[in-house]
């Protein structure tokens, strides 16, 4: 089976650019037979782009966010990098928002919807891998499905 070429793009650090990029990726998912899992993939993509724009590049439109989506036989990966100073992802991964918190849920969404979450040492690049599901399910990762 031949897989589509990776989808690579650069975008300015604005939330409007996140919306626009996600629209383009939705079309790419449909064109490549991934429409059944679009909710989870687009949610992961949005969270990673939002984090890069807001926390990484501090909404500075001059700074770019780099993104790559790659489809394999059983996996789809999303790689997002910003130009920021990075963050202490090991500490942040342990954080869980309480019911009244109005922010701080992005990393929890990574952990729920991605099967693998890998940050570079600096914390300004994240790689999210999601196992492709058969059929129209929007399942959580296998460790979280219960």
């Amino acid at each position: 089976m031949k897989y589509p070429a990776p989808l690579r793009f650069k975008m300015p650090s604005t939330l409007a650019a996140v919306d626009e990029s996600c629209l383009g990726v939705k079309t790419w998912l449909q064109d490549n037979g991934l429409e059944n899992d679009w909710f989870a993939v687009l949610l992961l993509l949005r969270e990673s782009l939002n984090n890069a724009v807001i926390h990484g590049n501090r909404n500075d439109p001059v700074l770019d966010v780099d993104c790559e989506l790659r489809r394999g036989r059983r996996w789809l990966s999303i790689s997002v990098a910003d130009s920021g100073a990075g963050f202490s992802w090991a500490r942040a991964k342990k954080h869980r928002a309480c019911c009244r918190d109005t922010c701080g849920r992005g990393l929890e969404i990574y952990q729920l919807y991605a099967d693998e979450v890998v940050f570079n040492r600096r914390g300004n690049r994240v790689l999210l891998r999601r196992q492709l599901r058969k059929g129209g399910e929007c399942a959580l990762n296998s460790n979280r499905a219960k």
């Binding site: 909710f39 687009l42 949610l43 949005r46 969270e47 939002n50 019911c99 009244r100 918190d101 109005t102 922010c103 849920r105 992005g106 969404i109």
Partner: peptide
């Protein structure tokens, strides 16, 4: 609405608060 992200969730929580 077909998708809600963490920013949208934050808005819902803030409004509820």
């Amino acid at each position: 609405v077909d998708l809600v992200d963490s920013g949208g969730i934050g808005l819902l929580i803030a409004t509820r608060n």
